[in-house]
Design a protein around this nucleic acid. Structure first.
Length: 510
RNA sequence: GGCCCGUUCGUCUAACGGUUAGGACACCAGAUUUUCAUUCUGGUAACAGGGGUUCGAUUCCCCUACGGGCUACCA
């Protein structure tokens, strides 16, 4: 059965998208593009209690930042809309009713307390938490157990009710998972899941199946946490008469915390000092702030590349892939089966690689953004900014390191006592004076020329070349790191260099 | 507890019955660098355990152990 590939990313807007969510979206996108199919965003907001303002927009912003272009969704529209489940509310009831009529579902009037009571009443050592299923439903308040009169009575009193799927006893439910192969469940282990809630909204299980069917979804690529409820979904497809339209399932392994075990959570990020969300997020209820990969300084290409490799591998030794290259190389077959621990070090490495690859014009644009943030007052020429950037390009992890760690490229440094103490005592005021007048007559043509000239000067003055260069570095940089001294001198120019030597010398004498 | 999924260097992973078990990150050492990085070279380091199947198992099957997920009128 060949049908057009249509995949959906279906998050619920209960907060910011985390790493795992973005990766699920990424894999859906890659698969869609690889197969010349459509990538769709559907917002699953059937739980009105968990609605978080801003979350929906956050999801779309995050996908956009990561470069995962949608073919259909809330903003792009499409002929299968609306794409927000709350906007499709009136659609679902008829399918729940259809299931009741065909005998595959039933109405249940039990209150929360009554269900609790059942669970404690039937609890046993073998079965500590009995479920609402073929064994217990006959003892509950529903249209299967109750007689006609009691049902009418409950309905007349407007007793709140839900609709539950009637899961059969002891039937084998099997399906082919694209990642895990054949998965088999016995229906007796399942419970009669609520498919339609008393507030008039469907639960995930129903809404998901109805929408996937209506939107002609061909493949469901989602997290592994959905594997246990997939047999319910399979049953729903059968009972609704849509078995031949059931999508292929692919259940992704989870992203785990770097240390220990378990799913990666926001707490791990806070604890270990790295972001777990793509973009910054302010929780509107608690005002809690969470840092995003974008704000941390990650390039979107590096971020998606890194994410793609958390649970997938091309099978070759290539690791750097643009989004388009990922599309070409992607296959569900190569998705791994086990959970992947998130490794922030490797994420940093990916970003470094992408910084090194940046074109001059792109790099310049990014540099200017950072500079305007740090030095809103100052003006620098593009030529200067790019030269400065290229001087430190291969020693930075993030573009913003240029202003956070290399400010001396744009303003004179301050000289703290600890750094001044590292200047050799052989560097005296007399020496500084001589140096300044020497440099004053020096052409600033090339770094090589400057270097040999300075070496010669140090030799003539009988100052150790190491001591001298260290002094020069401290004057220019304010610390013992950075590009080579002659390169910096050429970049900054004679006047700035002389000023800094003067400033530094003055600091020593004070 | 039950059900389901998983298990190769510290981490991400390659291997689709026969390899000195490969790569990357991290780490260590050396070279380059008058600093810090970069770069280059080299190194340490893994098939969870036990049974089968097979001429031969990291690879296929079973069991055990361990890890994870699910077990809501949440998704």
């Amino acid at each position: 059965m060949i049908r057009p590939v249509r995949v959906r990313f279906a998050p619920s807007p209960t907060g910011p998208l985390h790493l795992g969510g973005v990766r699920t979206a990424l894999y859906n996108y890659l698969f869609a593009k690889k197969m010349n199919g459509k990538f769709i965003l559907r917002i699953e907001d059937t739980d009105q209690n968990r609605f978080v303002p801003g979350a929906e927009k956050y999801i779309m912003d995050a996908l956009n930042w990561a470069g995962l272009t949608l073919d259909e969704g809330i903003e792009q529209g499409g002929k299968y809309g609306p794409y927000r489940q709350s906007d499709r509310k009136q659609l679902y009831k008829q399918y729940a009713d259809q299931l009741v009529e065909s005998g595959h579902a039933y109405i249940a009037f039990d209150s929360k307390e009554e269900i609790e009571a059942m669970k404690t009443a039937f609890a046993s050592p073998e079965n500590p938490s009995p479920s609402y299923n073929f064994e217990t439903r006959l003892k509950m308040k529903n249209t299967i157990a109750l007689d006609k009169h009691s049902i009418e009575e409950l309905q007349k009193n407007n007793t709140p009710f839900v609709i539950r799927i009637k899961v059969p006893k002891n039937e084998e439910i099997r399906f082919e998972d694209e990642i895990r192969g054949t998965v088999i469940f016995n229906s007796s282990q399942l419970d009669d899941k609520v498919i339609f809630k008393s507030d008039g909204m469907p639960t995930y299980h129903l809404a998901n199946i109805v929408d996937d069917y209506l939107m002609e979804i061909s493949h469901v690529i989602r997290g592994e946490e959905w594997l246990p409820s997939t047999p319910i979904h399979v049953l729903l497809y059968q009972y609704l008469g849509w078995a031949d339209k059931m999508p292929q399932f692919a259940h992704l392994p989870l992203i785990l915390k770097p240390d220990g075990n378990g799913k990666l959570s926001k707490r791990d990020g806070d604890r270990l000092g790295f972001p777990v969300f793509p973009l910054n997020w302010e929780n509107p209820e608690t005002n809690e702030h969470s840092e995003g990969f974008r704000e941390r300084g990650f390039l979107p290409e590096a971020f998606t590349n890194m994410l793609a490799f958390l649970g997938w591998n091309s099978g070759t030794e290539q690791e750097i892939f643009s989004l388009n290259e990922l599309v070409d190389a992607f296959s569900i077959e190569k998705i791994s089966h086990s959970g992947a621990k998130f490794n922030f070090e490797k994420a940093l490495w990916f970003n470094e690689q992408y910084i090194k690859k940046l074109s001059d014009s792109h790099f310049l644009d990014l540099l200017k953004v950072e500079l305007s943030k740090t030095f809103p007052q100052k003006q620098f020429t593009d030529d200067y900014v790019l030269k400065a950037g290229n001087l430190i390009k291969e020693r930075i992890v993030f573009v913003k390191d240029i202003t956070e760690k290399s400010k001396y490229l744009f303003e004179n440094p301050n000289y703290g006592n600890d750094i001044l103490q590292k200047i050799s005592p052989t560097i005296t005021n007399v020496f500084s004076e001589k140096l300044l007048s020497h440099i004053g007559n020096l052409p600033f043509n090339s770094a090589q020329e400057l270097e040999s000239n300075l070496k010669q000067f140090a030799e003539n003055e009988q100052v150790k070349i190491g001591d001298f260069m260290k002094f020069m570095r401290i004057c220019i940089v304010g610390e013992l790191s950075g590009p080579t001294v002659p390169d910096l001198m050429i970049l900054l120019g004679k006047e700035t260099v002389c000023n800094r030597i003067t400033n530094c010398s003055n600091s020593i004498t004070q």
